[in-house]
Design a protein around this nucleic acid. Structure first.
Length: 558
RNA sequence: GCACCCAUAGCUCAAUAGGAUAGAGCAACACCCUUCUAAGGUGAAGGUUGGGGGUUCGAGUCUCUCUGGGUGCACCA
């Protein structure tokens, strides 16, 4: 579409007193079908001392162009409609569709991004709320890679916390521990600790021995953490989500890395020692949304607390000196992150760019790992796969695990990524398995239709004449197709993958409408047939790329 | 109590850095498979964009306020 904006801006600049730059920055591509491109003239009214309507109609009457079908004033909007043949040909020849084209054009090749995400506590199987973190971040990683970036994806493993101590304590007499039983063990020990006051001190004794690097305790912690982390990784890997590096919180304890930070803060007026010896950062005056912003860095004995280790970790990440440093974090950590950011600023480091997301809610309220009111990601994955497999058996006469997984996992990702990150997502088992309408299945299904047609046609499309594509359905589809690059860039700029879901959905709907109203293979005109085949080939490429950026796979047949 | 986020059709969500007639899907209604995959398409129906004020030529979008939901508020991670 950029190329047409440029075309119109030049045309207007030549035929009016408005400058090219001013026009270009005010042009719009209306989503209604009143015009292909429009210039709202309201802003120019003061400067030109004329009404928007007369500005638009004056310019309209000045312009004649062989590629335009219509130039008109509609209530102060200067509306341009291109001849369909020109529009189709120009857009299909000049828009960017492939990874190569887009990465080359974007001009960001070789830039580096460190992205940390998920980083959930290694205490249980992840629930679908946590999955939101991984899905959003993974899509961003894919977008950065697509644009030519080198990404370094990190996972911060909180392997030194009270919850690990609890699990270590609860499993101390067990010979083996499996991933699947951890959640129940965690729920049980939390329940038990409520009524048995002797447990808590024992747990803290565990934690204390761990921090003192007692080999036996460290091994017990490690057993829990590795069991859990491996289980979590396996689930995410099934969803094609991977990390480059796992950073362990315990290194900051065992290697005393936090000491350097305390040294650096020594003498700083914001740092003070409380009566009992704790080291505290007074953050009054910083832009932090709580009444009494204090960040407690250490215990009374000056051993580090989580936030100090987190600051240390953030500095390690900052010292990687990547072009961008991004962190995906739940909304529950907003204030905490503000505090960490302020502390980093004080120490002379830049905080990561942050992407917050809201929680997934169940129809009866919130999820809670401790109470066991959660929907586990792996349960959701399994149930969805089974249901899709049943449908496949019904349609095709046989089950197909590989297809079922691609479809089911796609549906999960699509439904979670569809919502804007700042909004709560409502998860409902009753409507989670709707595979019709606005879902990834609809997109995958139409992709399969395209591939089926291309297989049957088996014709080379290189010499296609795009100017033959002029029906309203074709033009609408082509306009939508040409937006792909802009959408990828919006996701890059806003760090919001839901835009890509909307686009994919809308592109597919437009293809589907074209498909049902125009014949492709049975098209009587051979040249038109080739042009249409070339068009759907490009639609297929964009759908495949768009889904790929969401972490969703395509199928050549369903 | 204070701070931040959210509120759009019966339900789940859109609305391209304020722009024209607020769009999809689900559910409910009427149609369309001798035709490229019907997990599809077409039509009709569904809205005082939570309430009230303000800014603007123009507000779902910005602002103030009220209501309701989410999240958080020093020695947890």
């Amino acid at each position: 579409m950029k190329i047409l904006f440029d075309y119109i801006a030049k045309l207007i600049a030549k035929n009016s007193e408005l400058s090219y730059e001013k026009v270009l920055s005010n042009l719009e591509a209306p989503s209604n079908n009143l015009a292909d491109i429009a210039l709202p003239c309201f802003k120019f009214a003061k400067e030109l001392h004329t009404s928007p309507v007369s500005i638009a109609s004056n310019i309209a009457s000045n312009i004649t162009d062989k590629n335009l079908e219509k130039v008109e004033n509609v209530n102060g909007y200067l509306n341009f409609t291109f001849k369909p043949a020109f529009l189709s040909d120009t857009l299909l020849k000049n828009s960017l569709f492939t990874e190569n084209e887009i990465a080359n054009f974007a001009g960001m090749k070789g830039k580096t991004a460190l992205i940390e995400h998920t980083s959930i506590n290694p205490n249980a199987s992840p629930h679908i709320g946590r999955a939101r973190n991984a899905l959003i971040a993974d899509s961003l990683v894919r977008v950065f890679k697509f644009l030519g970036w080198k990404t370094d994806v990190h996972y911060y493993v909180n392997d030194a916390g009270k919850q690990i101590a609890m699990l270590a304590y609860a499993t101390k007499d067990k010979k083996t521990v499996t991933f699947s039983e951890l959640l129940q063990i965690y729920i049980d020990i939390n329940e038990k600790a409520k009524s048995d006051p002797s447990i808590e001190p024992e747990v803290f004794a565990y934690l204390n021995r761990f921090e003192k690097n007692d080999p036996k305790t460290v091994a017990e912690f490690e057993r829990i953490v590795s069991t859990c982390l491996n289980g979590q990784k396996a689930i995410f890997n099934k969803l094609n989500i991977f990390w480059d590096k796992f950073d362990y919180e315990s290194q900051y304890i065992h290697e005393h890395k936090t000491d350097a930070i305390l040294d650096k803060l020594k003498g700083n007026p914001q740092l003070f020692e409380a009566e009992d010896g704790r080291l505290v950062l007074d953050q009054h005056g910083e832009d932090i949304g709580i009444e009494n912003p204090m960040l407690v860095l250490t215990r009374a004995d000056h051993t580090s607390l989580y936030c100090l280790r987190d600051i240390c970790y953030s500095i390690d990440k900052a010292n990687a000196h990547t072009d961008r440093n991004i962190l995906v974090l739940g909304e529950d950590q907003k204030v905490y992150f503000q505090q960490i950011s302020a502390a980093l600023k004080l120490l002379g480091y830049k905080a990561p760019e942050i992407v917050h997301y809201s929680f997934v809610l169940l129809p009866d309220g919130k999820m809670s790992t401790r109470n066991g009111t959660v929907v586990l990601l792996e349960d959701f994955m399994k149930e969805a796969t089974d249901r899709v497999n049943d449908i496949l058996a019904n349609r095709n006469g046989q089950k197909d695990d590989e297809k079922a997984q691609k479809i089911a996992y796609g549906a999960i990702k699509y439904s979670i990524l569809k919502c804007s990150p700042e909004k709560n997502v409502l998860f409902d088992w009753n409507s989670a398995f709707n595979f019709t309408g606005d879902s990834s299945v609809f997109v995958q299904y139409n992709y399969a239709r395209i591939q089926s047609i291309l297989r049957k046609a088996n014709i080379k499309t290189e010499n296609a004449n795009f100017s033959l594509l002029s029906t309203p359905n074709e033009v609408t589809l082509i306009k939508e197709l040409s937006r792909f690059y802009d959408v990828v860039m919006s996701v890059y700029n806003s760090l919001n993958p839901s835009l890509l879901v909307n686009y994919t959905s809308s592109l597919t709907a437009k293809f589907s409408q074209f498909y049902s109203s125009e014949s492709i293979l049975n098209c009587e005109n051979e040249k038109l047939k080739i042009a249409r085949l070339a068009l759907i080939e490009k639609v297929g490429i964009v759908i495949k790329n768009a889904l790929h950026l969401l972490g969703i796979e395509t199928l050549d047949s369903i």
